[in-house]
Amino acid sequence: MTTPTNTLRGTLPDLAPRRQSLAQRLADPLFAVVTYGLIAITMLVIVYPLYFIVIASISDPNLVQQGKVVLLPKGITFDGYLTIFGTSTIVRGFLNSVVYTVVGTVISVTMILFGAYALARKDMPGRNLFMILFVITMFFDGGMIARYLVVKELGMLDTMWAVVLPGAVGVWNLIIARTFFEQNLSPELREASQLDGASDFRFFFGIALPLSKPLIVLMAMIHIVANWNAFFDAMIYLSDESKYPLQLILRNVLIQSQASASGMDMASMDSTAAAQKMGELLKYSMIVVSTIPLLIAFPFLQRYFVKGATLGALKS
């Protein structure tokens, strides 16, 4: 039988504050200072280049080259933005990029989800063989000429499909998605749904996809970035300038502005130096214009990105 004295003795150690040595008391504040200091330095290293690009895009290029633009813009001018948005090809390229990004992301995410779920099913005949064939493509490539001939024979040259279809499925993303399904969709869950009369399609659309929101957002973010920044496939497969995406148009504008004083209203400039000055403005302005959409969208999806990447890449 427990006596009141024993009970009191058993509770006193729990109520008493823990004694800390002087070293421990000094270590906690020091650790906090060092940690927050490193975080602040890291944020500064990441954020300042972005901030510098913004202020450089509205500053006098001569002052930027002289190193006089550090924290605040100087010689403020919006000629770079006026030149970009005053050209119809830039606006059309922006709309083309939006279309290519939306269509390409939908196609890629759909194909990866269907393919990964099938490869995650252990009762799928030949799934190991299919996986080997997919992995082989990660190490061996037919090359640019072979891809061009395939796109040409399929009749996709100078069309949107030449931009969004050749790289629609990334094998690494397929592996991540397959691992996610294997770890989060147990065979017992599928068997329970089958006992309730659910078909494979109903299980996939009614149970698997709702449980895969982090994976879907992860795949969508990866392909949004890839499709938005892509220009090489468009440069190879598209010949009609009205179908060029934004990145390809901005690339061509930058090359033209640095090479000569012609194009993009530069014919009225008096010297090559003036054209180079405009080229510097265009360079920074185009970086801002092309990255703003992604910077706006990503903070809202970051938590899904981290969760999806962790669940898809690590084994619990």
Rank of each mutant, 00 (worst) to 15 (best):
residue 255 I to E: 11
residue 266 M to A: 12
residue 203 F to R: 14
residue 239 S to I: 08
residue 231 F to S: 00
residue 188 E to F: 07
residue 217 V to T: 01
residue 196 D to N: 12
residue 257 S to T: 11
residue 266 M to K: 09
residue 247 Q to R: 08
residue 207 I to K: 10
residue 213 K to E: 03
residue 211 L to V: 06
residue 259 A to Y: 06
residue 250 L to S: 00
residue 262 S to N: 08
residue 270 D to N: 14
residue 225 V to W: 12
residue 272 T to S: 05
residue 224 I to T: 01
residue 204 F to H: 11
residue 256 Q to C: 07
residue 219 M to N: 10
residue 261 A to Y: 01
residue 189 L to I: 15
residue 215 L to M: 11
residue 195 L to S: 05
residue 203 F to Q: 15
residue 191 E to R: 15
residue 208 A to P: 02
residue 198 A to V: 05
residue 189 L to T: 15
residue 243 K to C: 07
residue 188 E to W: 11
residue 269 M to R: 10
residue 220 A to N: 00
residue 198 A to N: 09
residue 188 E to D: 14
residue 219 M to S: 06
residue 250 L to E: 01
residue 260 S to C: 05
residue 270 D to H: 11
residue 223 H to P: 01
residue 268 S to T: 13
residue 261 A to D: 03
residue 190 R to P: 02
residue 210 P to C: 09
residue 254 L to N: 04
residue 195 L to K: 04
residue 197 G to H: 08
residue 238 L to E: 04
residue 252 N to S: 12
residue 254 L to P: 01
residue 268 S to G: 15
residue 224 I to P: 00
residue 218 L to N: 02
residue 201 F to T: 12
residue 232 F to V: 12
residue 233 D to H: 10
residue 199 S to A: 06
residue 223 H to W: 13
residue 254 L to M: 13
residue 223 H to C: 05
residue 233 D to V: 02
residue 195 L to M: 14
residue 207 I to L: 15
residue 253 V to K: 00
residue 227 N to M: 11
residue 201 F to P: 03
residue 250 L to F: 04
residue 242 S to R: 13
residue 231 F to Q: 03
residue 201 F to Y: 05
residue 223 H to F: 11
residue 265 D to C: 02
residue 182 E to I: 07
residue 192 A to M: 08
residue 269 M to E: 04
residue 242 S to K: 12
residue 214 P to T: 01
residue 187 P to E: 14
residue 223 H to S: 10
residue 206 G to R: 09
residue 199 S to D: 07
residue 188 E to P: 03
residue 250 L to K: 01
residue 254 L to D: 02
residue 208 A to K: 09
residue 268 S to A: 14
residue 208 A to F: 03
residue 194 Q to C: 03
residue 255 I to G: 06
residue 195 L to V: 12
residue 263 G to C: 05
residue 229 N to F: 08
residue 184 N to L: 08
residue 245 P to C: 06
residue 237 Y to V: 04
residue 254 L to T: 10
residue 240 D to Y: 11
residue 255 I to Q: 14
residue 230 A to S: 15
residue 206 G to K: 11
residue 223 H to M: 13
residue 202 R to V: 06
residue 254 L to V: 13
residue 239 S to T: 14
residue 224 I to H: 00
residue 241 E to L: 06
residue 271 S to F: 02
residue 235 M to S: 14
residue 271 S to D: 01
residue 195 L to N: 06
residue 215 L to V: 00
residue 247 Q to S: 12
residue 270 D to P: 05
residue 250 L to M: 14
residue 212 S to E: 04
residue 204 F to C: 09
residue 220 A to G: 02
residue 227 N to G: 05
residue 262 S to P: 00
residue 204 F to W: 11
residue 248 L to M: 04
residue 243 K to R: 14
residue 226 A to M: 09
residue 182 E to T: 10
residue 251 R to Y: 13
residue 241 E to C: 02
